[in-house]
Design a protein around this nucleic acid. Structure first.
Length: 501
DNA sequence: ACTAACGTATAG
DNA sequence: CTATACGTTAGT
């Protein structure tokens, strides 16, 4: 079947079909859409929207096994060396339980297109909720969570105005007030310049398409240069801290060295919540109390974590757009009147089926699939690594397409603005995902040295063997996000907001 | 000094 | 709500 038609309404009571193209559902809950296209063939879209992981690895573990986390969670690093307990081969592949959130329900809108593209608008800023979606069926390659904010609250984190990256160390743990209090309008863009393009990811390595609105605005393409934005096809998926970023404890700047050239203790981490930037040693020096909790590292976004302070304080999630302005801009600039919904290219389900099988135990295979150098014009299936990023809400223009374009490939277009990139090559490009994964591993290894509470167990949950796929995280000092609950009180519910970007 | 482009303001 | 504009910053 050429197109994946949603012609069956889920019996999920949380899911309400409002007409053929709109679904309202509570994203906090698990969403299941059963669609039968063709005859009895049943293609099931099971979208597990992760809520807060609580205790109890449930029996659904195997089902969740192939899912991914964008975070590492550090856990009881009493074994600083992991030699005796080798880390899991893919520590960021964690399993999750879908947990009903404690908050009030939130309604999202899912737009189902006849072309099998599923559009999701995620929770809005300040919804105080998180979501993580999981894909258990190949069809989900065709969906994407778009998160959109209506309002932008400036100055999410206080800065001292002198050093845009040296935030004033706040003696008090971040709280809701902490964030609201920092939303004064006195500071401007300069206070939020914290990310620059990595220049290594695949989009970064592309050439300007010369056809998108941003390119057309560029003087080199005959434009007047008013917009001053990068090419829509080149949106970085792994923005990094600029060289001028500095640790707010020691004030030392990151410098111009590449991340790979930095020693672990030299790597700066920006907290997703409080936006503070620290070296790990500096953090633990400055926040010995908070150190009783572990940080959670992003596997996907370089130099990003959730600091123990924010975890301990159960700091409310800041709006996503706060964290990744690039994403916000991307959402805005790429959604042609679609209310922030982003369309993914359609992939033939049968093809995906094949691909899915190829991807069984796929992570290893992923390295053979060489997702790089793929063409925009190539239809799905998208690679596993790409799924990984979609899964975590990365705004990869590779997968962002506006409707109605005149692109030669009906499945792939960005309002017809994206050129064919078949001929694009990037010698510099190495699989950023793999690289980031490796980085994440290193970070975790390193961070365990700093996470206090060696055998600690302040969480009182270490006892949980967490027998899960993480491979005995209790032994290697690392814990998957699914194990996060084991180190948090129920009141410390936490779910990392997906990074878009 | 120059280009690129981030983050935000604001016009439409 | 979206698209555009632009001050400002980052990198060269």
């Amino acid at each position: 079947m050429e197109h994946f038609l949603i012609d069956h309404v889920s019996n999920d009571h949380l899911l309400t079909i409002t007409g053929q193209t709109i679904i309202h559902y509570n994203y906090n809950q698990q969403l299941s859409i059963d669609t039968n296209h063709s005859q009895n063939d049943r293609t099931i879209i099971t979208e597990t929207l992760r809520g807060i992981k609580r205790k109890s690895s449930t029996s659904s573990d195997d089902m969740q096994q192939q899912h991914h986390s964008s975070f590492h969670h550090l856990h009881h690093p009493h074994t600083q060396q992991q030699s005796s307990h080798p880390p899991p081969p893919h520590p960021h592949h964690h399993q999750y339980d879908t947990l009903p959130m404690q908050q009030q329900t939130t309604t999202n809108v899912v737009t189902l297109h006849p072309s099998a593209t599923i559009l999701l608008s995620g929770p809005l800023a300040g919804s105080n909720s998180s979501q993580q979606q999981q894909q258990t069926q190949s069809n989900l390659a065709n969906y994407y969570v778009a998160q959109q904010q209506q309002h932008y609250v400036t100055n999410y984190h206080h800065t001292n105005g002198n050093n845009q990256y040296s935030t004033t160390a706040s003696p008090t743990p971040p709280t809701q007030q902490h964030y609201q209090a920092n939303t004064d309008k006195t500071t401007t863009a300069k206070d939020r310049h914290k990310r620059v393009r990595c220049k290594q990811c695949e989009p970064c390595c592309r050439d300007d398409c010369s056809e998108c609105v941003h390119c057309k605005d560029m003087p080199k393409f005959g434009g007047v240069g008013k917009m001053k934005q990068c090419c829509l096809t080149k949106q970085c998926i792994a923005p990094i801290l600029p060289s001028t970023a500095s640790c707010q404890v020691c004030s030392k700047k990151k410098g111009s060295r590449k991340l790979s050239q930095l020693k672990p203790e030299e790597i700066l981490y920006e907290c997703e919540r409080c936006m503070e930037i620290h070296h790990l040693p500096c953090f633990h020096t400055a926040h010995p109390d908070s150190s009783t909790s572990e940080g959670v590292f992003s596997d996907d976004i370089p130099e990003t974590w959730l600091c123990p302070k924010c975890i301990t304080a159960n700091t409310p999630e800041p709006p996503l757009y706060k964290l990744r302005p690039i994403v916000r801009r991307t959402l805005v600039t790429t959604n042609k009147g679609k209310n922030g919904l982003i369309e993914l290219p359609y992939s033939d389900p049968s093809q995906q089926q094949q691909q899915q099988q190829m991807n069984v135990n796929h992570h290893l295979l992923q390295q053979q699939q060489q997702p790089q150098h793929h063409s925009l014009a190539q239809p799905l299936p998208i690679s596993h690594s790409e799924l990984h990023h979609l899964h975590h809400g990365h705004l990869d223009l590779h997968h962002l397409y506006a409707t109605g374009g005149g692109n030669s490939n009906p499945n792939v277009n960005l309002g017809g603005l994206l050129p064919n990139h078949n001929d694009l090559h990037c010698d510099l490009y190495t699989d950023p995902y793999e690289a980031m994964e490796n980085e994440a591993k290193k970070r975790c290894l390193y961070a365990t040295m700093y996470a206090p509470n060696g055998n600690g167990d302040s969480s009182g949950t270490t006892g949980d063997p967490s027998s899960s796929i993480n491979g005995g995280s209790s032994n290697n000092g690392l814990v998957g996000l699914d194990d996060l609950s084991t180190s948090l009180n129920d009141s410390d519910l936490y779910v990392p907001q997906m990074f878009a970007v």
